[in-house]
Design a protein around this nucleic acid. Structure first.
Lengths: 334, 334
DNA sequence: CCTCAAAATGAATACGTAACCATTTTAAAT
DNA sequence: ATTTAAAATGGTTACGTATTCATTTTGAGG
């Protein structure tokens, strides 16, 4: 591998000068600069970022610990995060983590001495949080937050759950089911509690049979769907903890010959990009702002990295209903 | 930052021994091993991957230069690539490249001395190809290939285009349009030529008005759609260069109140995961194998990296029709 | 021609690790 | 006890860069 020393020798200057040519060319005379540039070109020299990191203690790399891409929410956010970070001169190490691989994912990030970590995969009660703080490395969670309520970017999940239930209630639905995710995750937890609050406020009855807090696997969602549809008194509406869940449920519904929204109204939360597609037109609750959570989080993270500003990021974006085609007024048929 | 030297001092051993504890613990006596482990734990020591890379000349990092995630093909492949690479102990630096940012993307990959590069963004006639070969760094292209016909993984694109047209023809369509991508890209080029071949083989007329090779932007696809729909003699079927194009066209169609497939049959190529969704059920052409191209490519790349096997990868996967719900028999109404 | 500050360059070092080679310790065989 | 090979450990160096400090060169002003 050709190094700056080789270039120096070839150009007849010191390695220091080569380094200067690359970093502070304004301090080197034109003729020597040209000499060095020529040598760089002739030898096909490419500086070694790792050696630089070592001496500068800065890697220009950010670790992204994301949820899986089969959840369209992470498609939107991953894309936004990587594009913004690249724009700002950072490389992004991406890992799609499932729970039993989390420790490895953190280890990888730490060993690479990344300048910052952006992650969605944190539990309300996650012990990693303290460790992250100890490490003294900038980090931010998006979509989820830790119970300590520090360094997060989220939407107003309680309100989202509330609006979603309210939407169904106002459409006349009386039997409304909930299919969400693990309550160890702030996002689902808050969305669920918002949902419950609305049910309570509007004095609707709610039996446990109608509640499924799944592990978000396709299989368990299908199971929930089948259980719901076998109930004596079937729900006419399902509120879900996320667009990805809603899309899975709709898929199940179609395969079982239920019509959405004619037989069953389904609403999501997140307003992922694809939910707008003409074939989908998912009714959902999402951020009022155009900017997605990934975008917001990465820009805050980079501010933290560069300004060293240590004040804690706590952003909760307001939400609204996006009324599309997967929910409808209930007919008074029963 | 706490280094292996600090650990050594704290444990009362040499730095070499600390290194050994981490890399070849079988060569160190139990008591010293315990001592060192204790010190590592107490000091919260985490090895520096960059320093290791420097001395080992191996980074365990792969650069992924992908197309944008709003194309679902890259959702599937990115996911597969990252997961497989992580499984095999490699980190992945992801970049979503648009054409004018390509040089930067390569520079980043080179400066980081990645162990390999996996890329989809190469043109038939791309000068970068020679440079990549010169660099003597393992690389593989997926989905697209260079005219040199080396180190690629693709589906049988000519056959895919052919089958797609044949499918429409056999359904009775006489006026079939083509909406594809830039012909500077092998994928679109070959798919288009397959399409043309079928049209020719079945003696269908084809006017230039029905051909659009777009830049794959949403806008230009919409333009193509509108032009087609304003034609005196409207096409009853559109063959497209990719599922992402098909999905965009269908979106346009729905917004203009055309019914797919009743008013218009549309077929894609790629068989992306989401095309199977109940709400979508896109008819398409895709690989017979379950394994997606990203998976295939990354496993081949890692073989190259680890076995140093220099024989050139040339994989073209056979394809078949996935007959779903966006195409139908034409009625003899005209 | 001399002085002297500014500009330009170079020498030496540190970053944190693994690898190589040398040395010490251990334990088995005599 | 002595020898000897194996096991265990340590000292030193290299990786490729940026930085710090020292040295040389330059050119303006007297």
């Amino acid at each position: 591998m050709v190094s700056s020393k080789d270039v120096a020798k070839h150009a007849g200057v010191s390695q220091t000068t080569v380094s200067r040519v690359l970093n502070t060319p304004e301090f080197v005379k034109k003729p020597t600069l040209d000499k060095v540039m020529k040598a760089i070109d002739e030898l096909n020299y490419i500086p070694n970022a790792h050696a630089r990191s070592l001496v500068q203690n800065k890697t220009n790399t950010i670790a992204l610990l994301s949820g899986p891409l089969h959840n369209p929410f992470f498609v939107d956010t991953t894309s936004a995060i990587i594009n913004y970070a690249n724009e700002m001169g950072y490389r992004v190490n991406v890992q799609y983590v499932n729970d039993h691989k989390l420790p490895e994912a953190y280890a990888t990030a730490f060993e690479n001495k990344v300048d910052g970590i952006i992650l969605s995969c944190i539990l309300i009660d996650d012990p990693i949080f303290e460790k992250l703080k100890q490490m003294d490395i900038p980090f931010i969670t998006y979509n989820r937050k830790h119970k300590k309520n520090e360094n997060f970017v989220e939407i107003d999940n309680v309100q989202a759950g509330y609006l979603s239930a309210k939407h169904m209630i106002e459409l006349g639905h009386k039997t409304i089911a909930w299919v969400g995710g693990p309550l160890t995750v702030s996002t689902f937890n808050n969305r669920y509690s918002g949902f419950l609050q609305a049910i309570k406020d509007y004095n609707l009855p709610l039996s446990e049979q109608y509640i499924f807090n799944t592990d978000t696997s396709k299989q368990e969602i299908s199971t929930a769907f089948h259980r719901l549809m076998k109930l004596e008194h079937r729900p006419t509406a399902i509120c879900t903890g996320a667009d990805s869940l809603a899309l899975n449920l709709i898929d199940d519904a179609i395969r079982e010959d239920f019509k959405v929204p004619d037989d069953l109204s389904i609403i999501g939360i997140d307003n992922v990009d694809i939910s707008q597609h003409g074939l989908i037109q998912l009714t959902t609750v999402g951020s009022i702002s155009q900017q997605n959570l990934g975008d917001l989080a990465i820009s805050e993270l980079i501010k933290m990295i560069e300004n060293k500003k240590n004040d804690c990021i706590k952003i909760t974006e307001p939400v609204k209903i996006f009324n599309r085609r997967t929910t409808r007024k209930i007919e008074n048929e029963q």
